[in-house]
Design a protein around this nucleic acid. Sequence first.
RNA 1: GCCGCCUUAGCUCAGUCGGUAGAGCACCUCACUCGUAAUGAGGUUGUCCGCGGUUCGAUUCCGCGAGGCGGCUCCA
Length: 663
Amino acid sequence: MSTDTAPAVLTVTAEQAGGTAGELLKAAGVKDSAVARVGGELRDLAHVVAEGDVVEAVPYGSEDGRAVLRHSAAHVLAQAVQDLFPGTRLGIGPPVKDGFYYDFLPERPFTPEDVAAIEKRMSDIVRQRQRFARRVVTEQDAREELADEPFKLELIGLKANSSEDDGSSVEVGGGELTVYDNLVGEELVWKDLCRGPHLPTTRDIPAFRLMRTAAAYWRGDQANPMLQRVYGTAWESRDALKAHLTMLEEAEKRDHRRLGAELDLFSFPDEIGSGLAVFHPKGGVVRMAMEEYSRRRHVEEGYDFISTPHITKGQLFETSGHLEWYAEGMYPPMQLDAELGPDGEVRKPGQDYYLKPMNCPMHNLVFRSRGRSYRELPLRLFEFGTVYRYEKSGVVHGLTRARGFTQDDAHIYCTREQLKDELSSLLTFVLGLLRDYGLEDFYLELSTKDPVKYVGADATWDEATRTLEEVAQESGLELVPDPGGAAFYGPKISVQARDAIGRTWQMSTIQLDFNLPERFELEYQAADGSRQRPVMIHRALFGSIERFFAVLLEHYAGAFPAWLAPVQVVGIPVHSDYDGYLLDIAKKLKAQGIRVEVDTSDDRMQKKIRTAQKAKVPFMLIAGEEDISKGAVSFRYRDGTQENGVPVDEAVAKVVQAAEDRT
RNA sequence: GCCGCCUUAGCUCAGUCGGUAGAGCACCUCACUCGUAAUGAGGUUGUCCGCGGUUCGAUUCCGCGAGGCGGCUCCA
């Protein structure tokens, strides 16, 4: 993505001291530098350097360079908004992944027309070549200058303990308070409390575009007022901007919600409810193929298959603690079996039944159903377990965030001594399985203890975390730390996968649990006859089948590999006289378990090819007089290439082979 | 849940400044029987998301609700 190439590094000589970083870089022939890194800190090009300072160029296309140009673009956005809508109060405006935003408290929400006008005004500001000038101010001065900006005043008050989390550090993060003035000539046209650094002038912003408006809570807190956020994207060149917009278009084209409808895979009927999918025959068969292969692999890896109900009495989730902590994420209970007297008095209290939001408590009951021996461990209990979570209405999103979904869930019970080997083979299994489904590019994330919110002994955490880390490192994959990201009951590794267009998805999670074995009093008898508590590992490889389905659908842009494709082969007769010939071939394919259809409609052949092509069918077998006379077919691939005169048995074998090879 | 936008045929979308609607694709019928991404002609299809209000009259205006989209917050 970024265009980092060894940037120029200079050391300031006595003669150069007193000049600016920009002059220095210019004299050295460096053109591509958004700002300068001086002694490790990012500084404006106007920063005055001292003898001995080490000055490094920061190319526009580097990560830091992009952040700076995006931050400058955010300032231009804020200025444009205040030009057009005087009285609008400023929130914050940091750079973010792929762009920037600025939060506002306007007198009324922005309309799409407003956004177009703001963007146009921004272009004007860019053309004016306004200079970004840094000015150190005292807190007292800052408060006076920004008396009309209540949010900025709040930030000044927070200066001492600003954090990266809420973006406020871009305003007041440095050691001193600074204001950036926008100057046309020497005339002050706008200013903003800002830590900087910035590009030299607005004209130096190479390419930007406003994307959308949305709402956001002030400083990310639900309890705070809702501001209007305007999102933009900005890049080091017009080409880079264009490439980004093209990528977004591509992402939209392969959006699983759109492909799901286009390819007739699944839908979300209003009558059923938000976040609850139905899979149509074509989606159903893909799902079946996914599940079948997963089952086969789990059998090979020594898992035992179990099955548990969708509902349970509330007691189970009291034992597990879910009702205590996550009740608002669960569907409310069904009250059953209460008996009322004639006056409505309770004669017999009822029971609360809940839809399960997780499978683990039930798996624990299977473990606990009889005494367990160390000889049985590791015990690996697997199920495609369907769970229901009452996701808040605003977060439901296609198959990736649904209210009902099926996890490929397993719980592994083992001894502490077995933990390392078990985790190690598990990670190998996970990565291998994901590769079999066509994902290739991974990195790992290690979520470690939240120093405040956790259960279990520190020593246990340390040991387990170290084990996870060792296992992760042995995989050879990049390992990204996620400090404090663990659940309260144990550390975890998650596998992140990059898809065909470079987006990352959290896939599998491997999670240790120090809590549930205690709560369920899980025990096994050890070799010495003592009763021991097993270690518990939660793991889901797909996460949920629905979500994995969506990821694969987007990864492949609907063009599933042959083994997963809902229809693997379409027979296309050149003329209806040849329907029978292809139907016979289809019979042979079906006998080998291939999903095949023959297009016997009275469309023309060209139309049939188009139809099959749009359905993204991997193989087309075309037959006309020429082929039949040779006992052959014309074998067309989804990419448009074709082999003519392929003997029928050979064609069948090719298809069967492709399906078996999972290509 | 919060803010904003949206909801018209199976799909994508026009349209009605308040007088109950249309295109393309899909689907159906007929004709065509054709060699590599759309043969032609004809036809069917709508509680204009639901409920209430205003009105002589509401798909259109207002209110409430449901669902969707984009964010925020959340994601055990």
